[in-house]
Write a protein that binds this DNA or RNA. Structure first.
Lengths: 118, 118
DNA sequence: TGCTATAGTATACAAAAAGATACTATTGGA
DNA sequence: TCCAATAGTATCTTTTTGTATACTATAGCA
């Protein structure tokens, strides 16, 4: 990594991944393939419709996911990863792995604090 | 990636990396090693002292960077990556690479839009 | 006729992140 | 005696994110 901060493109990836629900949406779609709006919602207890819609729209605007509307009533809308979106997988995977190590790390830290305070 | 969203640890990494200046700070320290507060500030035009201090404290609390105070006047405080912090490098690297591809991708998209609107 | 299901909007509000600006302590040197 | 340098705090304001809640359209069905 020999580059200047001014050509740092880390922010681009970060901008796409950031948002309380985006990583969860992306991992879900990566694992499960195509999903309807209602299935996404069911899978994310606590999310509001507005939030889910917003996150999906943002991901769609970045060409990370695809939105397909079926002209039916009641409506049916399906979401899936684009090929381009799938290219985020290594990042998500790296983050997930790091996150698991981090959990251990925090556990150890707490252990140390207990020792030193007793 | 065959896991349930409820054991998704992506958020942990995200929580550490998110912040307008954190990736820049981390890449800088990874590349340049130990740096003083004033050097960090000089390297990030636009950041306020308050912001820099806050981001550094948060990274320190997570054991990602180390803060060493020299009892001098005027004060001297040095920051550097911890070993643990260096374990974030693959993620930052993956993000950087993706970001570069993203820049091309966006350029192509704009080309296509120009074509289709002419 | 009125209810259900689905995928949303619209509006108001609360909380978190970021920015602007002013202030502090201390010592060596002019 | 007063100024410069360094690494901060303390407040206040603005912007961005996220939450809560209510509302909409429409085909099919009882």
């Amino acid at each position: 990594m020999e580059r200047k901060p001014d050509n740092c493109r880390v922010e681009d990836a970060l901008g796409i991944l950031v948002g309380k629900w985006k990583p969860i949406i992306l991992l879900y779609l990566l694992q499960e393939g195509t999903k309807r709006f209602s299935e996404l919602k069911r899978n994310m207890p606590g999310i509001t419709q507005k939030m889910l819609t917003k996150q999906l729209r943002e991901l769609e605007d970045e060409d990370i996911i695809r939105r397909v509307v079926y002209p039916q009533v009641p409506p049916k809308v399906e979401y899936s990863m684009t090929d381009y979106g799938r290219s985020l997988e290594p990042i998500l995977e790296a983050m997930h792995e790091w996150g698991e190590k981090h959990t251990e790390h925090k556990a150890k830290e707490e252990q140390n604090q207990l020792k030193s305070s007793s």
